[in-house]
């Protein structure tokens, strides 16, 4: 019968009309990103970084710009680490290339910016700032420092 398909379609939409909504109200409810989520900005751990530059070399799009220097003990260290997130392909190659797991994604997917130069992230400055706050917070946190000492001693043994 002509029109049967039309009525069937109307039944589908009517059923959808009364069924549960599938959307989330975004700013209030946020999805948790999966463990392997690639997105956001690079997070650098400058303690772990050995300044080998493999990440920059693995990158297909020259997203990571780093300079290195040597300190008194002839040990190489980072002097700057700029991540141009506007160029990033989010391919994960840099993280896979890192021998010491010094970089990871911060998994913040809300990375819209108002200005283009805000897309260039100075990861080293952020990392230094972060470790500075941790060092500041550490003395107040006595038990933790003790634990760390204990761990260090164990490590020495």
């Amino acid at each position: 019968m002509v029109g049967k398909g039309l009525l069937e379609g109307m039944r589908v939409t009517l059923k959808a009309f009364f069924s549960k909504k599938e959307t989330l109200q975004y700013p209030e409810i946020k999805l948790t990103m999966p463990e392997r989520f690639r997105g956001g900005e690079l997070e650098l751990d400058n303690q772990k970084c050995i300044a080998c530059g493999l990440c920059a070399r693995a990158c297909p799009n020259h997203v990571i710009e780093l300079t290195t220097g040597t300190d008194e003990q002839k040990k190489r260290h980072l002097t700057s680490y700029i991540y141009h997130s506007g160029l990033c392909l989010y391919c994960n190659y840099c993280i896979e290339a890192c021998p010491t797991n010094a970089i990871c994604w911060d998994k913040n997917y809300e990375n819209a910016r108002f200005f283009k130069d805000e897309l260039d992230v100075d990861c080293l400055a952020i990392a230094k700032q972060k470790s500075a706050t941790i060092v500041d917070a550490a003395p107040a946190d006595q038990p933790n420092a003790e634990q760390e000492d204990a761990l260090n001693k164990e490590g020495e043994r």
Partner: peptide, 10 residues
Amino acid sequence: RLLTGNEILY
């Protein structure tokens, strides 16, 4: 049911 069966779409 929504699309394939629809006479207009056909």
